[in-house]
């Protein structure tokens, strides 16, 4: 009897120690990609093919975004923008239809006549760099990465895809007066919101 009691108490002590030694976490929280083993090219290729198209379909029309930001900036930034870090820069996926009014070596001016009032935006065709596409997509979670360089490399790979696969065919075809449809990313500074100098980094381009 006493023997059973002893073993029982030992078992209780064991359970107490074990309970305090083991904890459970969601599997998604444990998918940290280790430094040095992360293949940004492979990751980006998969993201581009499997997850980005649906995001592009859900991009907000630029004019609707502007209306929303003017009405309630905090709410609009919360609904339509993303960023991986801390700071004032916010990135939004937007769709725009407009007329190419100037074809420059590094960008194309697009007149967006549907906007109220009508506005011009610059479509970047040369300097496609930075985090706009990565962050605007909302498809990359900072908690999955313990190394900032992996995150930088995702941006670099996404931008490279645009520069090498999206832009060359478009640049060789587009003419002044063409109506173009663009889905891409813009950067807004939430502390100093300006819509008169927007630069659109393209992801998908169509000439109508």
């Amino acid at each position: 009897m006493n023997k059973y009691l002893t073993y029982g108490l030992l078992a209780v002590a064991f359970v107490l120690v074990a309970y305090n030694s083991v904890y459970f976490k969601k599997l998604s929280a444990m998918t940290v990609i280790s430094t040095g083993k992360f293949d940004a090219g492979k990751f980006t290729k998969k993201l581009w093919a499997e997850r980005l198209p649906a995001k592009l379909d859900s991009a907000i029309a630029l004019n609707d975004l502007i209306v929303a930001v003017k009405a309630n900036p905090a709410d609009a930034f919360s609904k339509y923008s993303n960023t991986l870090g801390i700071g004032n820069y916010r990135y939004c996926l937007v769709k725009v239809t407009g007329v190419a009014t100037e074809i420059n070596p590094d960008d194309i001016t697009i007149a967006v006549n549907s906007a109220e009032p009508s506005m011009n935006i610059k479509l970047a065709t040369e300097y496609v760099y930075g985090n706009a596409i990565r962050d605007a997509s909302g498809l990359v979670d900072i908690k999955d990465f313990s190394n900032n360089m992996d995150l930088n490399n995702i941006s670099a790979e996404l931008n490279k895809k645009v520069r090498e696969e999206v832009l060359p065919a478009f640049k060789s075809t587009v003419k002044k007066g063409d109506t173009v449809q663009v889905i891409g990313a813009i950067e807004l500074n939430k502390e100093h919101i300006k819509f008169n100098d927007l630069e659109l980094i393209p992801v998908q381009l169509k000439i109508q």
Partner: peptide, 12 residues
């Protein structure tokens, strides 16, 4: 306890 290991602060 749930903090990102590295969190970037935007440089403008």
């Amino acid at each position: 306890r749930d903090f990102p290991q590295k969190i970037p602060v935007a440089v403008e």
